[in-house]
């Protein structure tokens, strides 16, 4: 069974962001990078599926600059078998259709039985790429999956809806699955597996070879939203902050009365 997992490298959301010189994306220098949180669940599910069916080969794919290979190595250390790095220094200006188009072009003819993606990326957060890949490949897609099982060519999943309700659905493979938080418990790569991952295949393909879809939208401007309301900000020594907060709670609420 061939399995494809698509991952994206994103900055740590606690970073101090700046808008870059072009005014259309955030400045990518001086940021700490990691695997998109949703994609960690995708990688883990692929690896668990391989552990179940034994005979499987997992390709992890990531579109981005050279530095994304660091994140891909984590996926390889978690248990993916090979990496396809689609080299693209301009990935941040690509819209979901283009990203999905690149993935589709790569996947064509490779007979992936299951394609796992995250349900959304943390920085851009369009939540479109997985479903678009399915549409482009004419495959069914199940989204926002929080429970997954596979049995001889068929998957049964729970899709998370609003308010804690889930929908149980089944579908025959090949299929695209978009993974939601909490689907499983992503493993930490062990040291021996990190060493092993260094020897795994990590092919680089130029993005131009795979990009056949035109952009349908563009960013006009990126900026910081105006601060709403005048919330109070307390900074300083923790002991002083405690006194200040108690003062505020006494004045503004009835909980310490």
């Amino acid at each position: 069974m061939n399995i494809l997992v698509c991952i994206k490298q994103v900055p740590d959301m606690e970073s101090k962001f700046k808008v870059d010189g072009g005014g259309k994306w955030y400045d990518t220098t001086d940021l700490a990078w990691r695997m998109n949180e949703y994609d960690e669940y995708a990688v883990e599910q692929a690896v668990q599926l391989k552990e179940q069916v034994k005979d499987a080969d997992i390709t992890v794919l990531c579109i981005g600059a050279d530095k994304v290979k660091e994140t891909m190595k984590k996926a390889l250390a978690m248990g993916c078998d090979r990496g396809a790095h689609i080299a693209d220094d301009e990935v941040s200006s690509k819209e979901p259709c283009e990203i999905a188009g690149i993935i589709t072009e790569y996947a064509k003819g490779k007979h992936f039985e299951i394609v796992f993606t995250g349900m959304q990326s943390q920085d851009r957060g369009s939540g479109q790429v997985g479903v678009l890949v399915a549409e482009m490949l004419s495959l069914p897609a199940v989204t926002t999956v929080v429970d997954f099982s596979y049995d001889s060519g068929k998957i049964e999943v729970k899709r998370e809806l609003e308010g804690g309700v889930k929908a149980k659905v089944a579908v025959t493979t090949p299929v695209v699955v978009t993974c939601q938080l909490g689907l499983n418990t992503p493993r930490y790569p062990t040291l021996p597996n990190i060493m092993k991952a260094k020897k795994k295949e990590l092919l680089t393909i130029p993005t131009a070879d795979l990009l056949k879809v035109d952009a349908r939208q563009q960013t006009a401007k990126m900026y910081f939203p105006e601060k709403k309301g005048g919330g109070m900000v307390l900074e300083g020594e923790p002991a002083d902050l405690v006194d200040k907060l108690i003062q505020v709670l006494k004045e503004k609420t009835s909980v310490l009365a």
């Binding site: 259709c97 939208q217 960013t219 939203p225």
Partner: peptide, 28 residues
């Protein structure tokens, strides 16, 4: 084109959040 999670409409641009709503992007 699909623009996801729109929070505002300014001129003819659709406004969307980026990075956990820390920033915003105007999309054409």
């Amino acid at each position: 084109a699909q623009v996801s999670e729109v929070v505002d409409y300014v001129g003819t641009n659709l406004v969307v959040p980026v990075c956990n709503a820390k920033m915003r992007r105007d999309v054409q």
